[in-house]
């Protein structure tokens, strides 16, 4: 099986000299839900933002190593970064509705990609809202401001917004932070559906969530990978003492 994403010897240092990632190596396969977990400042978000090149916006950073997406280096200067970001969608910890209606938020990515046919846009908007388990709640008020949604609805709208582009990989940076248990369960449920079609890399809200949703997981600590393995291996029979301490709640 070839890897959807392979990360090879990736190191990353911020402008202030803080080393966020050190010699990261990992492979992520198609249609799996891969979880990156660990205490804060482990480098999880940094790693996600390097995969879709959102970290490009920072000045004065240092990066070495490579990230291959479908065997292509994402940092290849000839690669169209907007195309990359359409193939690798992202949902943030804090839901980020853009100014405008719910419908406008969903249609935005498609319009940016140059799709003008209203029928195609309408159809994809509906499908991705259904995939994100939000359609029934908003179908009668698609023209309302996206800011009028509740926190959980905003987060699911952001998920739908990245699905509308039919990406290959979805990066989820703590998509259930600040959500109530019911909304969290809704999001987690939709993840199981989504991985039939997409490859998902997720930073979870907690160790418990990580063990609930993961197919495979990587435990990160201070910018280094401690252990990578299947859900069983990481959460039931961890080999590294630090992984065991963290998943059993002895620190973190």
């Amino acid at each position: 099986m070839t890897a959807k994403l392979s990360i090879r010897d990736l190191s990353f240092t911020y402008a202030d000299g803080a080393q966020a990632l050190q010699h990261i190596n990992m492979e992520i396969f198609a249609n799996e839900l891969f979880v990156l977990f660990g205490p804060s400042r482990a480098g999880k978000t940094t790693l996600l933002r390097l995969i879709n090149r959102l970290a490009d916006l920072l000045d004065g950073v240092q990066r070495s190593g490579e990230i291959l997406f479908n065997d292509q280096d994402v940092y290849n200067p000839n690669l169209d970064v907007t195309y990359l970001r359409r193939r690798i969608g992202m949902v943030f910890a804090v839901p980020t509705p853009l100014p405008g209606s719910i419908y406008a938020n969903l249609a935005y990515g498609l319009e940016m990609a140059g799709i003008k046919d209203r029928r195609i846009i309408d159809e994809r908007v509906e499908r991705s809202l259904r995939q994100a388990a939000l359609w029934d709640e908003v179908k009668d008020r698609l023209q309302d401001s996206a800011f009028a949604l509740s926190g959980g609805q905003k987060q699911r709208m952001c998920l739908a917004r990245s699905l509308v582009l039919e990406p290959d990989v979805i990066l989820l940076d703590n998509p259930t932070s600040g959500l109530d248990p019911i909304s969290t369960a809704l999001v987690e449920e939709s993840l199981f559906e989504l991985k039939q079609q997409y490859t998902i890399i997720m930073v979870p809200h907690s160790v418990q969530q990580a063990s609930r949703v993961a197919d495979r997981a990587a435990f990160l600590l201070n910018g280094e990978v401690v252990e990578i393995g299947s859900q069983q291996r990481i959460f039931i029979h961890p080999r590294d003492k630090r992984t065991e301490d963290y998943v059993t709640g002895r620190f973190g």
Partner: peptide, 12 residues
């Protein structure tokens, strides 16, 4: 977050 949100959707 607005910029990130838009850029992550593949906007230039």
């Amino acid at each position: 977050e607005y910029r990130d949100g838009a850029l992550a959707l593949g906007a230039t």
